[in-house]
Design a protein around this nucleic acid. Structure first.
Lengths: 342, 342
DNA sequence: CTGAAAGCGCTTACAG
DNA sequence: CTGAAAGCGCTTACAG
């Protein structure tokens, strides 16, 4: 049996209240007694039960992390940063891979509620704002990597729009004028923002993006590959592709290879996310980097702030994205039909 | 305030014992009463507090997962399978990325103890058997993906030795006779086993593996690249490389590219693990696949078995590895100096 | 500076 | 079939 606070108290000849006070460094305890009690705790390998202390109104020191899939490198990296910041502050993380499926989300939410986690970080679907609103009433929540504008909730995102601009900027600077886009599901705000920033910058440069050059994809390599292949097979194929995540960019790379196009010689590809995948392809991917480490840490910090207050004003933090140039982009090939086009 | 068992009892005009019984489906409760109580629970959004029930001697329904790094694709995939099997059975997973550092391991172990997790899955360093033995006395543990032969503990591993054989087999079948190996730290049993199986098969074919052709690497792309480069620059460079994990294989691929060698035309590379990285390189990697999904699930199942028993006999489960042929291996190039050599 | 006592939300014998 | 009561291991006013 593990030692309890009673064992320590008995051993030290004091009350459990006194032991509790030294554990929590509360009240005034004579230095002697404290030292003695500490020594006994040490000797008995005593560790206070978080379970019991949680029941008496304290925190559980546990956070829930809802993401689509921990096996996805992007979320794995975010999870690591959530974990690290949490660990620093004494919190554990329960991972919940939802596959963006409503029923799994509901199940996990119920579990987290039963376990009375102190806070929840939501990086998953959850487009039903109502659920989220209810949730946030009961447990502090922060949404990460996406936005639910219909609900007032803490949010930390990458500056997707700016990232989209950066991507366009980079391609334009390389002289590219015929562009294609592989977008992630446009139902997701962050995808729309990336595209929006990209378009904005294009318009400023008076470069058009024909509707047919914009492909909406699922979050899968094969889909990116298929859509890119179609784009490349069109009669005025793009000289550069903006892919809204690394998986799609990998697919695009594969499509280019099969089409016999050299990257970046004949086709430039710029990605978004900058997970480990971007470093492993050949050529490695030029990408707009999301600050994954900072995303996770910021989400945890927001939760911590929230713990202090009764009712807080919700914050939205947008972290800067950044261009990382690698080998998958280069200057546009000498134009067959130069200049702008439709 | 959330509803408690008292609220339900009051509302239903019964005792909390009765409510508890319907929650846990214990004892006999008249169908009418049960229905009514269930309805009230529903109406009040009641969910029993796991905290309270854990304090009264039941399980916490939480498992700890110690791994080196959740951001590493291999462990992320394992974690996903642990999570899924756990979720099916009603357990949540707390992730603990240790970076294989003693102090982090100790910290996390203390946290898991305070939280009274029902079981711990250990996929991290922990070579100090003593710690592990103590741990297992208090909390059921299973070691995953590695072995600690000095301690009797449940273990689930991939059949590394057989995997090593498979790799050798595949290369030999391609006519390769000059081989090189990039091994992960040979301090780890599983690395040694992979190498051992590989060697065994080579010996059966009377093909030698000179000491200089065996490079011990850390778990990093750059290291794989550097070591591979050295190997390729030697005077009798290998025609095929066995890399003990995907990261090293990626490094080898990069080294080959820089050396101007075509893969698999002039150099074959076979990897081990078969994470998503293996599918993303160019060419994609032929690899010995670890059954990551089954590793995680098996570990959870072993824990569940353990929960039943008082003192169990420790089991060791070795899951089959499997050859997955992709584009990074091919027949050996026509030999300059054929046959076997030293 | 120290302790007695109530309470957190459950479960579990034990009576009836 | 149902309930009263003790107990799990803590924390927290409140007294002294």
């Amino acid at each position: 049996m593990r030692a309890t606070i009673y064992d320590i108290a008995r051993e030290a000849g004091v009350s459990i209240a006194t032991v509790s006070k030294v554990i929590n460094q509360k009240g005034k305890i004579s230095a002697d007694k404290r030292r003695e009690i500490l020594a006994i705790m040490e000797r008995l390998h005593y560790q206070p039960s978080r379970i019991a202390s949680a029941l008496t109104g304290k925190h559980t020191y546990t956070l829930g992390l809802l993401i689509p899939d921990i096996a996805n490198p992007f979320f794995a990296e975010v999870a690591r940063s959530v974990e690290d910041r949490g660990h620093e502050l004494g919190y554990s993380i329960i991972i919940c891979s939802t596959d963006n499926r409503e029923e799994r989300i509901a199940q996990y939410l119920a579990v987290l509620r039963q376990k009375q986690v102190d806070g929840i970080i939501i990086g998953t679907g959850m487009e039903s704002g109502e659920l989220l609103r209810e949730l946030d009433m009961e447990t502090p929540a922060v949404v990460i990597g996406r936005e639910v504008p219909s609900v007032p909730v803490h949010t930390v995102v990458a500056d997707d729009r700016y990232g989209g601009r950066l991507a366009a900027e980079h391609l334009l600077a390389g002289g590219h004028r015929r562009l294609g886009v592989l977008a992630e599901g446009l139902g997701i705000m962050s995808s729309r923002e990336r595209l929006r920033g990209f378009r904005e910058r294009l318009e400023e440069a008076q470069v058009g993006l024909p509707a047919s050059a914009l492909r909406e994809c699922s979050y899968r390599i094969e889909d990116g590959k298929r859509q890119a292949a179609e784009l490349l097979a069109s009669e005025q194929p793009p000289t550069a592709l903006f892919c809204c995540n690394d998986l799609l960019a990998v697919g695009a790379l594969q499509a280019a290879r099969e089409a016999g196009l050299s990257v970046p010689g004949e086709l430039s590809i710029i990605s978004f996310d900058n997970t480990i995948l971007a470093t492993v392809t050949d050529p490695p991917l030029t990408a707009i980097a999301q600050p994954m480490a900072r995303l996770g840490a910021a989400a945890v910090d927001l939760l911590m702030e929230e713990f202090g207050q009764e009712r807080s004003v919700k914050r939205r933090i947008a972290l800067r994205t950044e261009l990382v140039v690698r080998g998958s982009t280069a200057a546009a090939p000498p134009a067959r039909s130069s200049g702008s086009e439709l």
